[in-house]
Design a protein around this nucleic acid. Structure first.
Length: 482
RNA sequence: GGCCCCAUCGUCUAGAGGCCCAGGACGCUGGCCUUUCAAGCCGGUAACGCGGGUUCGAAUCCCGCUGGGGUCACCA
């Protein structure tokens, strides 16, 4: 049987890096097994859900190259894929549970609940601001065993069976996980406005959508138990669970949107990280395959399995992300990189940049010299300009009288170069070195400073080819004071 | 605090009883190469949290401790 997996984000903000990894692992699992990857929108938190967030999440996934087979914009056999569009289904199932005596209508009001908390605090001699959860407060509804229906607001609560012992499940990454029955209480299924809460909506949808494997963050371990009870109450068989470790910030705290800007997937796009580099990095955070560090997308799909996901949390490591990004800039397809680079060049103030053959050559020349697309755009920008401003220190060091003298000789040779290619241009340095007995540095550096304005650039041949004959001679003349 | 999960270099990790006085990667660092800067190549730095067991033998199994994380809503 082909697996059906899902990613079920809540559209309450941008795509979080932890969510992206959860999506990635599920997606890889589906692609590896030729299964189906479902994208489901859990928008039952009406306070916080926004259309903009939904779009941001879709954009984030798309940027990362994680495509879904069913979900927003993709019809599938088990619609709708948005929870607020199937409210009737939840109500129907809640009614069914009530009829079966497995859930009940709880008419407890806000005031009554507050009173119960107060009484609890007083009985324990606790201060009014004490955290009652820590003190072990457990809500007991007086409606648990009543069946009458009243004409006022109510929530539907699950009637947790009073059973001895414990129950559990076999997690794909953590192994056997168990919990005593009496740890659970009568959790809410449906709010008073009829909207389902997470545990209920999640179970109903995973069942309705025939989900076979649920890969999600370890913060959901505890909610798996009430969910399991729901499966049991409905007589449904639960999916296989895989709880993947959390990603921590550099301060070792859980990666949060508020405290960690790197939690935003799209921030990395802005920083010039390649989508595949981020995918590669994120995959290696928690998952491994021997000593391998870099993987193509095809390799990830071929090698991924939940059983190779580790069980301990991982700390975000920006240096390694950069290193992997550099690796893919260096080893990726230059033409493809050129296309990815164009928007960054536009951003850098080079509106005329297009993914042409010249840009591809430029990408090749700089691929070992920059770590991000932002750096690449910055590095390339001067090559698109007319003329260049020469750095004072560089000029003082390399464009002294001797340097200028050498530059003149170089210019003469350059002018006579038939075909303006790196292969033809590079030997000029050697030729001059042989003729004058000067060191290559005494020849190449004055040229480099004259045409780039600074002391560093790719090889002279590549640099000059990129600049073109006219611009090279123009800049040399300017440096010579003509 | 209750419950749950976790524990190898600073970080990501390999390691499924002897192959490990622990390997790779990033970082940091010495050198080589070199027309600059990179890249590349060769080297160095640095870890099995602690204490008990089990075993001829433990990073690997068991227990305790400690530490870290998660979770306890009419959020997800």
């Amino acid at each position: 049987m082909k697996p059906r997996v899902r990613f079920a984000p809540s559209p309450t903000g941008y795509l979080h890096i932890g969510g992206a990894r959860t999506a990635l692992f599920n997606w890889l699992y589906a692609r590896h097994h030729g299964g189906t990857f479902v994208l489901r929108i859990e928008d039952t938190d009406q306070e916080r859900s926004t259309p903009e967030s939904l779009q941001a999440i879709l954009d984030g996934l798309t940027w990362l190259g994680i495509d879904w087979d069913e979900g927003p914009g993709k019809d599938g056999p088990y619609p709708p894929y948005t929870q607020m569009k199937k409210l009737g289904r939840y109500t129907e199932l809640a009614e069914q549970l009530i009829a079966d005596g497995k859930a009940y209508r709880d008419y407890t009001t806000e005031d009554e609940l507050t009173q119960q908390r107060k009484d609890f605090a007083t009985a324990r001699g606790l201060p009014p601001d004490a955290d009652l959860r820590k003190a072990g407060f457990k809500f007991k509804s007086p409606w648990r065993d009543k069946v009458e229906k009243q004409d006022r607001p109510f929530v539907v609560r699950f009637k947790m069976p009073e059973l001895e012992g414990s129950f559990g499940f076999d997690d794909l990454v953590l192994g056997r996980l168990e919990k005593p029955y009496d740890d659970l209480d009568d959790f809410v299924l449906l709010r008073s406005d009829g909207v389902p809460l997470y545990n209920f909506g999640c179970v109903v949808d995973d069942h309705d959508m025939h989900i076979t494997h649920v890969g999600r963050g370890q913060e959901h371990i505890n909610s798996t138990f009430p969910q399991l009870m729901l499966y049991r109450a409905f007589g449904w068989s639960p999916p296989v669970f895989a709880h993947i470790p959390l990603i921590l910030g550099q301060d070792k705290e859980k990666l949060s949107k508020r405290r960690h800007p790197e939690a935003d997937v799209m921030m990395h796009k802005k920083n010039g990280i390649l989508p595949h580099a981020l995918v590669n990095f994120i995959a290696r955070l928690g998952w491994s395959h021997g000593n391998d560090e870099t993987f193509t997308r095809a390799q990830l799909i071929e090698l991924f399995d939940f059983k190779d996901v580790g069980s301990s949390n991982g700390v975000w490591n920006p240096e390694k992300l950069i290193a992997i990004n550099q690796h893919w800039i260096r080893n990726g397809d230059p033409a493809e990189l050129a296309r990815a680079l164009v928007p960054y060049l536009h951003e850098a103030g080079v509106p005329e940049a297009t993914a042409d053959e010249r840009l591809t050559r430029a990408v090749k020349a700089f691929s070992t010299r920059v770590k991000t697309l932002v750096e690449m755009a910055q590095a390339l920008k001067p090559y698109y300009a007319r003329g260049v401003t020469i750095d004072g220190a560089a000029a003082a060091k390399h464009l002294d009288p001797a340097g200028k003298e050498m530059l003149k000789k170089a210019r003469a040779l350059l002018e006579r170069t038939a075909e303006w290619t790196a292969a033809n241009l590079d030997p000029i340095v050697d030729q001059l070195a042989a003729e004058t007995g000067a060191k290559k540095g005494a020849i190449a550096q004055p040229i480099r400073v004259a045409v780039t304005g600074g002391t560093t650039s790719p090889g002279i041949g590549d640099t000059l080819e990129l600049l073109g004959r006219a611009e090279t001679l123009h800049r040399i003349d300017a440096a010579l004071g003509h």
